[in-house]
Design a binder for these strands. Structure first.
Length: 658
RNA sequence: GCCGGCGUGGCUCAAUCGGUAGAGCAGCUGAUUUGUAAUCAGCAGGUUGCGGGUUCAAUUCCUGUCGCCGGCUCCA
């Protein structure tokens, strides 16, 4: 039989498998690097007879997938997960297997066992995996009618596999055997265990069966695999680097903020340096909103329970809310209950309702840096990225249905400009109507169209999350990537049909008739706490100059330069910059080190030479030394550095602090 | 909330088999006047998260609780 590979024709025996073809085609080449192959664009299963692969395509281009391609890595990791399961089953025969997919940076497999697995088991499991790899066992695919497969797993006592088969729609299912271990699996896999790359088990965790907290907790083992040792090492190195730039660690080192767990778990104590960063960010953001036609408002922290009952929060969100109970003078009466706000929308609606609005007044755009409290479950707290008290850069836009799309375009522009300002990578998703929802089809359709139309006109790539919207309306979510590759939701733009209804918001149209406006909830940074946490990781603590709490520090060599250092400090401060002078009687190397550790952008050394020239020696936090500069030159450098990120578009830099 | 791990000076970490807590950095005091990532010396600092239990004796073992870390679920 003749097969075309890489444009060349090869003769292979009848009944050969894909991997045989590949071996023939690539004899002499580095077969070890090949995990699988692709047939006419689809990954081919190397353990399947070639005929089956070719059944649908007469003329077949067989194209290798290398183990370091994204597709190849996925196959490699999935196969490694199988081998891990095989190793676990051989060491712990009582363990039952659940699922074991490849994931973004590796793979996992979930097991059910009499005790959870721990990292102490890793040595034995990895050793067994290496044995299985050394034996170069083939992965053998076998297709069975589902009944037969079901009987097989019943015989094996694999209850989770039985449950999986029960949910499969297919009449025939595929099994993969690797040594004694047979798993329900769609494939594809590497042909033989000898083709596994470099792998390492990383951690264990509890995970619910099928991700549902009502189900049993399984024991999950995470691992990773790469084409070769070097790629694995690079990855482990990247993990270390990510740990190094953990915002919790850097926040402590730079004295930006702290937590006092004994006093207020999940709530931030902002120290002076961190509070300065926050203040600068807040002021910048308020100005940007005013510039874009928002109005600043602020509502109270507590609202009476009746308000939360009317909004529906009391029914739907109570377990996440904090309440206060004020004892009445008359002891027999129920205490008066206030809810501490978990959201800012109610106040904004009350402000809107303060008087009758005309269509000429719309849109109303209310902006508030609103402090909200949400009692998050204890296990989910995570530094600044997940807290119980946080500040939303929240706005509510109340507009006519006709204005909706235009308003959302404005909001997406704000999202885009902010992401550009910080050079963030982000993902946009539109979430559509969920099963459990309220409102008319017409409302949903119009709002969804407005959202999609707006981000298309803004030129943003996006995905659709079918059925993932809020019950009260569709939404746009924007997720940032942190240094560990984890995604954090920051911006969110949500249409709401419910609250205007519940709170009877109206405007008077051109015909004098009362109409229902649409409300858009939106937050761009999401929460200042989370956003600053992501910023710290993004920049590894070396914040952009305009945002760094200390922009320049003067270091004297000896006491003799004190007067000039103070003079220079005044001059730079008068230029609008945040400057410190380190006059301590310490060696220069020591002061430089401290300034470097604090990630101060401009380290300005003053010795006798500089005093004489009435300048400073400029060292950047990168370590680069710019040599002797006059004070006006330094001011110019600082100014240019502050303005640089704003040149990318949209945003304006026009403020100073000291 | 669930599964697992961990709580020792402000921070980072030690303390054999259970024998009564030790270092570096930071801090304070003094000396030193120094040229681009750590000058030297001295001093001070702890009810080992908190409660209960076992023991002659608990940082160490058991238990409860609070918190943190890694995940799961949820989420800005």
């Amino acid at each position: 039989m003749a097969v075309l590979v890489d444009g060349k024709e090869y003769n292979v025996p009848q009944g050969a498998s894909c991997s045989d073809v590949l071996k023939t085609a690539l004899s002499g080449k580095k077969f070890k690097a090949l995990a699988a192959c692709r047939l006419n664009g689809r990954p081919a299963d190397l353990s399947t007879p070639l005929d089956a692969c070719l059944a649908s395509d007469a003329a077949c281009g067989l194209e290798p997938i290398t183990a370091d391609s994204p597709e190849g890595l996925e196959i490699l990791r999935h196969s490694t997960a199988h081998v891990m399961a095989a190793a676990v089953k051989s060491l712990f025969p009582e363990a039952r297997v659940a699922i074991g997919p490849s994931i973004e940076n590796g793979f996992y497999y979930d097991f059910s066992y009499s005790r959870p697995f721990s990292t102490e088991d890793f040595e034995a499991i990895e050793a067994r995996m290496r044995e299985l790899a050394a034996r170069d066992l083939p992965f053998v695919r076998n297709e069975l009618p589902r009944d037969e497969a079901l009987r097989f797993f019943i015989g094996q006592g694999e209850s989770y596999k039985q449950a999986l088969i029960a949910d499969l729609p297919d009449e025939r299912v595929s099994l993969y055997a690797c040594g004694d271990f047979v798993d329900l699996c769609r494939g594809p896999h590497v042909p033989r265990t000898g083709l596994l790359g470099a792998f390492k088990l990383l951690s264990t965790a509890g995970a619910y069966w099928r991700g549902d907290e009502k189900n049993a907790m399984l024991s999950r083992i995470y691992g990773t695999a790469f084409a070769d040792e070097k790629a694995l090492k690079d990855y482990l190195h990247r993990l270390e680097e990510a740990k190094r730039r953990d915002h919790r660690k850097i926040g402590k080192e730079l004295d930006f903020f702290a937590f006092h767990e004994e006093a207020a778990p999940g709530m931030v104590f902002w120290h002076p340096k961190g509070m300065l960063v926050r203040t600068i960010l807040e002021d910048f953001w308020r100005r940007e909103h005013l510039r874009r036609g928002y109005e600043l408002v602020q509502g109270p922290q507590l609202l009476r329970r009746e308000l939360w009952e009317r909004s529906g929060h009391y029914d739907n969100y109570r377990e996440n809310m904090y309440f206060t109970a004020i004892k009445q003078d008359d002891e027999s009466r129920e205490p008066e209950i206030h809810g501490i706000k978990p959201m800012n929308c109610l106040s904004h609606m009350l402000i809107y309702r303060g008087r009758l609005r005309s269509y000429r007044d719309l849109p109303q755009r209310y902006f508030e840096l609103g402090v909200v409290h949400r009692h998050e479950k204890s296990g989910v707290l995570h530094g600044l990225l997940r807290v119980r008290q946080f500040t939303q850069d929240d706005a509510h836009i109340i507009c006519t249905p006709d204005q909706l799309e235009e308003e959302i375009i404005g909001v997406s522009a704000l999202v885009r400009d902010l992401m550009h300002l910080f050079d963030f990578s982000y993902k946009v998703a539109v979430s559509t109507r969920p099963e459990k929802s309220i409102g008319s089809d017409e409302d949903w359709e119009r709002a969804t169209k407005a959202l999609v139309g707006a981000i298309e006109r803004a030129g943003m790539p996006y995905t659709i999350n079918e059925g993932d919207g809020a019950f009260y309306g569709p939404k746009i979510d924007v997720r940032l990537l942190d240094s560990l590759g984890r995604e954090w939701q920051c911006s969110t733009i949500q249409c709401d049909f419910t609250l205007p209804e519940r709170f009877d918001l109206v405007y008077v149209d051109a015909n004098g008739e009362r109409r229902r406006p649409v409300m858009v909830h939106r937050a761009i940074m999401g929460s200042l706490e989370r956003f600053i946490g992501v910023l710290i990781e993004h920049y590894a603590g070396a914040l952009p100059v305009w945002l760094n709490p200390v922009q320049a520090r003067l270091l004297t060599v000896t006491d003799a330069q004190h007067p000039f250092a103070l003079e220079a400090k005044e001059a730079l401060a008068a230029g609008g910059f945040r400057v410190e002078a380190d006059l301590r009687n310490e060696k220069l190397g020591f002061k430089v080190r401290e300034a470097q550790v604090e990630k101060i952008p401009y380290i300005l050394v003053v010795g006798d030479k500089e005093v004489e020239a009435r300048g400073v020696n400029v060292r950047l936090r990168s370590g680069e030394n710019l040599g002797l500069k006059s004070l006006p030159d330094v001011i110019e450098l600082l100014r240019a550095d502050c303005q640089k990120p704003f040149k990318r578009g949209g945003m304006r830099y026009n403020f100073s602090y000291y």
